[in-house]
Design a protein around this nucleic acid. Structure first.
Length: 777
RNA sequence: GCCGGGGUGGUGAAACGGUAUACACGCUAGGUUUAGGACCUAGUGCCCCUUAAAGGCGUGCAGGUUCAAUUCCUGUCCCCGGCACCA
């Protein structure tokens, strides 16, 4: 088939028609179902999951392409290792993002989501990802949210869902409450901080804003639904020990859970009219306590950076010595944490010291006494106690675009769950879906929705009009994918047992304490309910970096969002895939630039020409080419497992350079094609089938193996160092390079080295076989 | 403040005890082309030097360990991220 061509010259005539070839194989892959594994046969299962996107109006941007390609490349790599890779995709389509956009353009969110999900699907197909399009999930579909509501009922049955009046975070712009986890620093939100009127705030120090819109949150006392995630605090902490996640993400969760062990200690007030209980992690410093500080909501909410206090006029008694400790109201004690009261120990706590100095309180120097831990509990003054930073998960939202909470408030029976058989509670189509910020959601204006009969007693009752937080939708979606075709259950027992947990979860680190913790919590609850056989959903999670453009995180507000479509149509999906994977390691934050992608296009063209007009040599390729090929297979294979696709591609480029220079044969080209396949699936398939004449499909072919014995090349360069400085080099035979005597002799004969050795005593010789020799003189 | 992750050419980056800058981008010169583009060839850290050879200096900064340090250790500065008056 190949003519004998010595030099790669005059290849300008060969064009790679990416549009035609990519379309051709995308259709063939779908027709032949090569990415649709048979879920009834799980022997070689590999569940490869990328965090599903919320379908925005703008569509996927290049950052999505970077992340999703990273996931897809690994899925292809595993498929070429004989795994039945299940790689599903879906849409996190409920929630404020989609709803706010619908409000902005004045269109029904149902319609908006239908349009945006369609656009996403087209974009993801155009990138050539190996998704199983027969198992997609859309969280705003009644078929899906029916089971989100089912999950709520399970929480209720397990005693883990409750409604309670509490001081909660409220976003005046989104006109809804937020979970603690959704209240973040402006930097984390990636937004300019704004006040309730939408004006930018420049003094952004220590501000807490809405994760969605960047508006400074307010505190309100409202009746809200919570999930008791605090009950799982310890289990969530312990589970971190057994999962393969980066320390960075694990620590973020650990910090968020914020476990601290200490004691609750009671102080009687002076005139015997009560007692004050404090939480402390340092009961051993009780002897040095000089005052009691209690939280004051009013002072606390003033958000003063300086410590402020007011003396209450009361005194509390230190339990052992009965010392009189003044009781102060302050702003530096958090009301919601511990007992909302602390003992002030200026000698052992900087903050207490600052306060004591400001208000001229006593400062007592006493050494800590470890025995106090025991003595306090023996005397009954206090007891050991563990506190957590983690709060219960606030799941209700006074919005429209979410799954209605399936509960009914009956004047006779109290809160009654909607029976499972009556699910889903359909979200009605209404036109007045804008939030009003009255503390009630838009559904509260619709009698036809909330006027119901009590499922228990049949009397008149009121349906809950709040909907669920989007993070409830996404807390269990990975369970639904393999069972998306089941109508009568949220997830099928057998399929779930066979295909879960997820083998590799690929996603952004920004979800460290939101989605990832909620999903772990929900999994543990379902495990306890004996509905799952595992209690960690994602034993391996890889956090990719966030793509940068012009030095800043891509975001619509900055106007630096790159749409991949134009690059797909101009350069093709393969070039774009290779380009974004080549930018840097997957966990870095690559900067997208146009000039780079043109360079990658050159590489793709070179590849295409190399395969179509190869400089084939008759018979066996040189040993140098064989050794380079084996080195490359080894390097690429190792890099793939570490998500260092950039260096994997670099070594493939090196191999291409070597082949261009020294020639190849069909066997070498086949291996090269296989190495390229995960990155450039279309080009590789075209070459594999049409040029190399191999059976369809390369994506089910075996990943090439390397032969250790063929890695070594004929000659090796040995570095000669004198006192650790490189002075010369020797090119010697492979065998000779490991013989110290030979190398020493050759080094002395080497002109350059001899110059440095002349007139010196050699004190020591360090020899690293096959690498270097170092003379110490 | 505490806890993570980082500071390497003009740029993205590689090496992570053993030739610092692989692989690319960009740039310079030459070839090819009617021209441009594309493509091909050569060069490209800094200093000294007409050039080359040879040499010196170079991985934020200052020390240390080692025959040998971007890599290990100590101190320090800066950037990014998480948590935070959480007692």
């Amino acid at each position: 088939m190949y003519a004998k061509v010595i030099k790669l010259t005059n290849m300008n005539g060969i064009k790679y028609d990416h549009a035609k070839i990519e379309k051709k194989w995308q259709e063939k892959w779908e027709k032949e179902k090569i990415y649709f594994p048979d879920l009834s046969r799980p022997d070689n299962k590999y569940y490869n999951l990328w965090m599903f996107p919320y379908p925005s109006a703008e569509g996927l941007h290049a950052g999505h392409a970077f992340a999703s390609t990273g996931s897809d490349v690994f899925g292809r790599f595993m498929r070429m290792h004989g795994k039945d890779v299940f790689q599903p995709i879906g849409y996190d389509s409920f929630g404020i993002h989609s709803e706010n956009y619908a409000i902005k353009i004045g269109e029904d969110p149902h319609k908006v989501v239908r349009r945006t999900t369609k656009h996403y699907e087209e974009q993801m197909r155009s990138l050539g990802h190996g998704y199983d399009w027969t198992h997609t999930v859309t969280t705003s579909d009644p078929d899906y949210y029916r089971w989100t509501q089912w999950l709520f009922l399970k929480m209720w049955e397990a005693g883990l869902a409750y409604k309670k009046k509490a001081t909660v975070n409220f976003c005046p712009s989104c006109k809804t409450v937020l979970a603690d986890e959704q209240v973040v620093t402006p930097a984390a939100a990636g937004k300019e901080p704004k006040d309730a009127a939408g004006k930018s705030i420049t003094n952004s120090e220590e501000l807490k804003v809405c994760e969605r819109c960047g508006t400074v949150v307010e505190k309100k006392d409202l009746d809200q639904w919570f999930f008791k995630i605090t009950k799982y605090a310890d289990r969530l902490l312990e589970g971190l020990e057994k999962i393969d996640w980066s320390t960075r993400v694990k620590l973020a969760q650990k910090n968020w859970i914020g476990k601290s062990q200490g004691m609750l200690i009671k102080f009687e007030t002076e005139n015997g009219d009560g007692e004050i209980e404090v939480f402390t992690t340092r009961p051993d410093t009780l002897n040095a306590a000089t005052f009691i500080a209690i939280a004051d909501e009013g002072l606390y909410n003033q958000e003063s950076s300086e410590k402020v206090g007011e003396f209450t006029g009361k005194y509390a008694l230190e339990p052992f010595s009965k010392r009189r400790l003044p009781v102060w109201k302050t702003n530096y004690v958090a009301p919601g944490y511990g007992t909302g009261a602390i003992m002030g120990v200026p000698a052992h706590d900087e903050r207490d010291m600052e306060f004591a100095e400001k208000y001229h309180l006593d400062i007592v120097q006493k050494d800590p006494d470890k025995n106090l831990w025991q003595e306090i509990s023996e005397k009954g003054f206090g007891k050991k106690h563990t506190n957590y930073h983690l709060r219960d998960w606030l799941v209700s939202r006074q919005r429209y675009w979410g799954a209605p909470i399936p509960m009914v408030d009956c004047p006779e029976c109290g809160w009654v769950p909607v029976p499972e058989k009556d699910l889903p509670v359909i979200l009605p189509n209404i036109s007045d879906y804008k939030p009003e910020g009255t503390g009630k959601g838009p559904l509260a204006n619709h009698k036809e929705f909330y006027q119901v009969k009590c499922p228990k007693c049949g009397g008149d009752a009121t349906r809950e009009t709040d909907v669920m937080d989007t993070f409830v939708d996404s807390s269990w979606y990975f369970l639904r994918y393999p069972s998306s075709d089941r109508e009568s259950v949220p997830f099928d027992g057998e399929v779930t047992r066979n295909w879960l947990p997820v083998d590799l979860y690929f996603g952004g680190a920004e979800h460290s304490v939101l989605h990832l913790m909620y999903a772990r919590f929900v999994t543990k609850v379902l495990f306890d309910l004996k509905l799952l056989s595992f209690d960690e959903p994602f034993p391996k999670f890889f956090a990719h970096g966030l793509m940068i453009k012009d030095g800043a995180k891509m975001s619509k507000s900055r106007g630096n969002v790159v749409n991949p479509d134009q690059y797909v149509s101009k350069f093709g999906a393969d070039t774009l895939r290779l380009y974004v994977m080549f930018l840097g390691p997957m966990d870095a934050s690559p900067d997208f630039r146009d000039s780079g992608i043109e360079g990658m296009q050159r590489f793709v063209t070179r590849l295409w020409k190399l395969f179509n007009q190869p400089n084939t040599i008759d018979g066996q390729p040189s040993k140098g080419v064989v050794s380079k090929l084996n080195q490359t297979i080894k390097k690429v294979t190792e890099d793939m497992y570490n998500f260092k696709y950039n260096t994997a591609i670099a070594s493939i480029m090196e191999l291409v350079n070597t082949i261009s220079d020294k020639g190849s044969n069909e066997e070498v080209l086949r291996s090269l094609c296989l190495l390229v396949a995960p990155f450039a699936p279309h080009l590789a398939e075209e070459v594999w089938v049409e040029v190399l004449g191999q059976p369809f499909s390369i994506h089910k072919a075996s990943w090439p193996k390397y032969d250790d014995s063929k890695i070594a090349s004929d000659t090796v360069t040995i570095v000669i160092q004198i006192n650790g400085k490189v002075r010369s080099q020797l090119v010697v035979g492979n065998k000779q390079s490991t013989i110290q005597g030979d190398i020493e002799t050759l080094s002395r004969k080497d002109e350059n080295a001899a110059k440095w050795l002349k007139g010196h005593d050699i004190k020591k010789v360090i020899f690293v076989p096959g690498k270097l020799v170092n003379f110490v003189v």
